[in-house]
């Protein structure tokens, strides 16, 4: 029997764990299990995984990888990470260093952070507005500089659709690395810089030898959260291209949704969601451990 005091301690945890169990633990187990069932509910082992990874081109399209988009949702997600992650880090560093001590810096940071505040579904509509021929500013800019091949509706062409949503995703996300790096910069004591200057270090030496290494904890946060963002993006693609044209900008979360609510196949949908979860765990584990190793 618990003492009265112990008993009321339980009540601090009870509601929280009821919710966690119902909405996180149970779905994790159940969706993983659903991934082994066919559309009709029979156990088919790894059947769904074979269907989505090998027998269809939805996630990996080998001929597409050679011939051009669509390359499959999984490959698109990887391309997304390869382009978006380094650019997010660079932009976040750039903004945080540039806007550190200047007048109006907080205002400018707020403007850049606005992308994080507006709904992703609005960002999707914005993508259409920015990249549409005639009306959009991006095709017009390419017309002005004379690159006619990019003066077109980017979202209607398989070779540009994915890149348009990645570019907007960068606009959306840049505020996050900026804020994390700004906090990291504020934690570096001014005396470090003074000592370096007295020793005659140049600005770039100070940045690469002092600032950057001391920002490593911030970088780990940025990398982990950015990869999460990249792999979880759904609304933006839904509103901008709906994965099209012809699947050329499809991503894993949208593919899972399409399987479930367009093809009514919760087996393949669950297998896709499970695969996505495994990718998230794997990439995060990989990035954290590689950075921790680098520190030693």
């Amino acid at each position: 029997m618990l003492k009265k005091n112990e008993y009321n301690k339980l009540f601090f945890f009870l509601p929280f764990f009821v919710f966690i169990t119902a909405y996180l633990v149970y779905p994790l187990i159940n969706t993983t299990a659903l991934g082994f069932l066919s559309k009709e509910g029979e156990f088919i082992g790894l059947g769904n995984y074979i269907k989505i990874l090998v027998k269809s081109n939805d996630l990996i399209n080998f001929s597409g990888v050679i011939k051009g988009f669509p390359m499959g949702a999984l490959i698109h997600n990887l391309i997304w990470i390869l382009i978006h992650l380094p650019l997010s880090i660079v932009l976040g560093l750039l903004f945080s260093v540039l806007l550190k001590d200047i007048k109006g810096g907080l205002l400018m940071k707020s403007v850049i952070f606005m992308g994080m505040i507006i709904p992703m579904i609005v960002a999707g509509v914005l993508t259409r507005f920015l990249f549409e021929a005639n009306i959009g500013i991006i095709p017009n800019l390419f017309r002005i500089v004379g690159i006619e091949s990019l003066n077109k509706s980017w979202l209607a062409h398989p070779d540009t659709a994915l890149f348009s949503v990645i570019i907007v995703s960068l606009w959306v996300w840049a505020g996050f690395p900026m804020i994390v790096y700004s906090a990291g910069l504020a934690n570096i004591p001014e005396t470090y810089y003074e000592a370096a200057r007295i020793e005659g270090a140049s600005t770039s030496q100070i940045f690469f030898r002092i600032t950057l290494p001391l920002l490593k904890p911030a970088t780990i946060v940025v990398v982990v959260m950015t990869i999460l963002h990249e792999l979880k993006t759904f609304d933006l693609v839904y509103a901008a291209t709906f994965g099209g044209p012809g699947g050329a900008s499809n991503v894993m979360p949208l593919q899972a949704w399409l399987y479930a609510f367009r093809a009514s196949d919760f087996g393949r949908a669950s297998a896709t969601a499970t695969l996505l979860t495994i990718m998230i765990i794997f990439t995060n584990f990989f990035s954290i451990s590689s950075m921790v190793k680098g520190e030693r």
């Binding site: 996180l24 149970y26 159940n30 969706t31 949704w257 949908a269 996505l276 995060n284």
Partner: peptide, 19 residues
């Protein structure tokens, strides 16, 4: 363990909750 649950993608949650 509770913290690790934070990375769960919405699709993983949504499909089971819908059912």
């Amino acid at each position: 363990l509770v913290l690790l649950l934070m990375v769960t993608p919405a699709q993983m949650i949504g499909l089971s909750v819908y059912k």
